[in-house]
Simulated scan of single mutants.
Amino acid sequence: MSMPTSSAAPLGPRINWRELFRRVGWLETVGIVGVLLITLLAFAAPWITPFDPQLRVAEAFLPPTSAHWFGTDEIGRDLFSRVVLGVQYTWLPGLAVIVFSLIVGAVIGTIAGAAGGVVDLVIQRIIELFLVLPSTLIALAVVAALGPGLLNTMIAIAIFWWPWYARICRDEIRRLKSRPHVEAARVAGVRGPRLLLRYLLPGAVPSLLVAATLDVANIIMTMSLMSFLGLGQPAPAPELGAMTSRALDSLTVYWWLPILPAVLIFLMCILANLAGDGIRAALRGA
């Protein structure tokens, strides 16, 4: 009589959703939901704006009304439509910089942590060189040299953002190399890329993910600063930082022109920080 076959083992640990939601507070949950909604809004912005953000649709300097929720600007363009499209110009490039820096930093940090020796020493010195430089000032100089533009701004920020992730990944890889499950894998004959991709890098992912989510607000603020200084996408592109900068002279008279774009930048940063705290709490002890 043949023995009954056992059921296949699960591919990974089961997620305790009740414990997960207990660790993440309601405020952090609001942040995570808010970040998801902002991302959806950024992708859908060109199709949900009530007016063409580039065309004059009413008299200039109209205050917020039921027809124009955020009023109109100095030309007569609908400010709500421009602010909604401005989310796309600010939020999506910020996420792109995070993803690019995360990938580059993870690759370089993994190489340093796994190789050790001279390779690790050289990469560490390069990382430290980038970290001690005044990154914001040099990023401003890079954009000024390349010329204003959204792509140039993204390049300038990404150049100085990846070392943080490289250091985190390198430290995590070195810590994981001495863990029992990695030693057992080595004894079992696991070597090279398989050891790296299956046993080392997955252990560094939670720390990288938390760092990346907490960095979203910093990226948004840095990109908005570049735009505020006139180093972002040239006019008439509706970048939130540039819209705030151009309307500062109207603050005491037409307050909605600089205030509403600035409030949206503030709201995006707050939600991003709350979401980062929520993800950190969710991964705690995972």
Score class of each variant (00 low, 15 high):
residue 26 W to D: 11
residue 57 V to Y: 01
residue 28 E to M: 05
residue 42 A to Y: 00
residue 22 R to D: 12
residue 39 T to Y: 09
residue 60 A to Q: 13
residue 20 L to A: 12
residue 42 A to Q: 02
residue 52 D to P: 03
residue 56 R to S: 11
residue 36 L to G: 11
residue 51 F to Q: 08
residue 42 A to S: 06
residue 57 V to N: 07
residue 29 T to Q: 15
residue 38 I to N: 00
residue 44 A to E: 10
residue 33 V to G: 10
residue 42 A to M: 07
residue 35 V to P: 02
residue 21 F to M: 15
residue 40 L to C: 14
residue 35 V to G: 03
residue 20 L to Y: 08
residue 54 Q to M: 15
residue 30 V to W: 09
residue 20 L to V: 11
residue 49 T to D: 07
residue 55 L to E: 15
residue 60 A to V: 09
residue 52 D to M: 06
residue 60 A to I: 11
residue 38 I to Y: 02
residue 47 W to Y: 14
residue 50 P to L: 05
residue 30 V to E: 09
residue 31 G to K: 02
residue 31 G to H: 01
residue 27 L to T: 05
residue 54 Q to W: 14
residue 32 I to R: 00
residue 53 P to Q: 03
residue 39 T to R: 08
residue 57 V to P: 03
residue 40 L to Q: 12
residue 48 I to V: 11
residue 46 P to F: 03
residue 58 A to I: 05
residue 49 T to F: 00
residue 31 G to N: 02
residue 22 R to Y: 12
residue 33 V to H: 07
residue 41 L to V: 11
residue 57 V to I: 07
residue 55 L to N: 15
residue 27 L to S: 10
residue 37 L to R: 04
residue 31 G to R: 00
residue 33 V to W: 03
residue 22 R to N: 12
residue 35 V to E: 03
residue 21 F to S: 14
residue 39 T to Q: 09
residue 31 G to L: 05
residue 30 V to R: 10
residue 25 G to V: 01
residue 58 A to R: 03
residue 45 A to W: 00
residue 50 P to H: 02
residue 55 L to P: 13
residue 59 E to K: 13
residue 24 V to D: 00
residue 35 V to M: 11
residue 37 L to H: 08
residue 60 A to N: 09
residue 29 T to D: 15
residue 40 L to K: 10
residue 41 L to S: 09
residue 47 W to M: 14
residue 61 F to G: 04
residue 24 V to P: 01
residue 32 I to T: 02
residue 46 P to N: 09
residue 50 P to D: 05
residue 56 R to V: 12
residue 36 L to T: 12
residue 41 L to R: 06
residue 47 W to K: 13
residue 39 T to C: 13
